[in-house]
Design a protein around this nucleic acid. Sequence first.
DNA 1: CGAATTTGACCTGCGC
DNA 2: GCGCAGGTCAAATTCG
Length: 328
Amino acid sequence: MEKKFEEESMMGFDDSAGLYSPAVFSDDFPSSNFDSFSSIFDMPCDAHKASNFDFYYYNNSSNNNSDNPSSFFDLLSTAAPPLSSPASTVPESSEVVNAPTTPNSSSVSSSSNEAAAIEEVNNSTTTHDKPSSSKVLKPKKKNQKKQREPRFAFMTKSDIDHLDDGYRWRKYGQKAVKNSPYPRSYYRCTTAGCGVKKRVERSSGDHTIVVTTYEGQHTHQSPIMPRGSLRVLPESTNNSLTVDHDTTTTGLLFQHNTSSQPFMYSSPPPPFLTINSSSVAATSTPHPPPPISFQPPSLPQASVRDHGLLQDLVPLQMRNEPKDEQNG
DNA sequence: CGAATTTGACCTGCGC
DNA sequence: GCGCAGGTCAAATTCG
């Protein structure tokens, strides 16, 4: 499949708009021209084949460019299926084309399927008490097609591979990635009973870009509540959640097909992605990048469905940022 | 000393 | 069936 990548958006990777300056991908993105994202857009692995995995990267640095969606929510309206929210009132944009979905993707759009996937993850957490015999791995049902949790990926421009998203992760593996000099790291949420996994890999073409993929749904709140960070506080096990963020939200969108809820995070010090290493200088600059202008629709907080990991992450209330604050 | 990471081996799925 | 690549395990090692 051929995909297109808007070169102007490519330029958006310049840090001028902040650490996480986004770009726009669309269907015709020539992955050969930017192999740093080939792992996603070529979908070489079952991670992208078997999962309903959509990936978007929004160029906030050119949001005044008519070639790009006028707002981040334009992206949402294009990329995501209609939300049970006023998102449908957002003007549509043809600039961003949904990342190619696999033939399998249709089969994962049902909630039952997602539930099955969640169940699988829950079950997998019990496989650790394996027999003490040499190296007997968990027996997998052969006839049962492996179903994956919905995944959400995002790119961050950072020197740091493992971004602190407020949860505690334990690294359980690392693998070399084909066609990439950078390894992929595998993390698992350390909270007991929480089967959320995370993959972190660095773009082969642009080593400053880190691609993080979340899989699964946290069964708990974030143990870390950094001040000034966006927090999504699950108020019940079902639908409602509370968003507390005082940062500008912009830029990056991820979405999976089983959920109509987009995922985004902020471009300045990201709301829930704070750098946890010593090289904070790259992100916690004394002069954070200017906020990005967009006019978010008022997303009804109460109408949020269970969106897995999104439920933990997606801000439902976005602040309207004055446009004059946006100074490229 | 417990927790976290590293790392090689192993398993699974898929394409040929 | 074979080989490859992704994903996971768990012993060894490192770290705090």
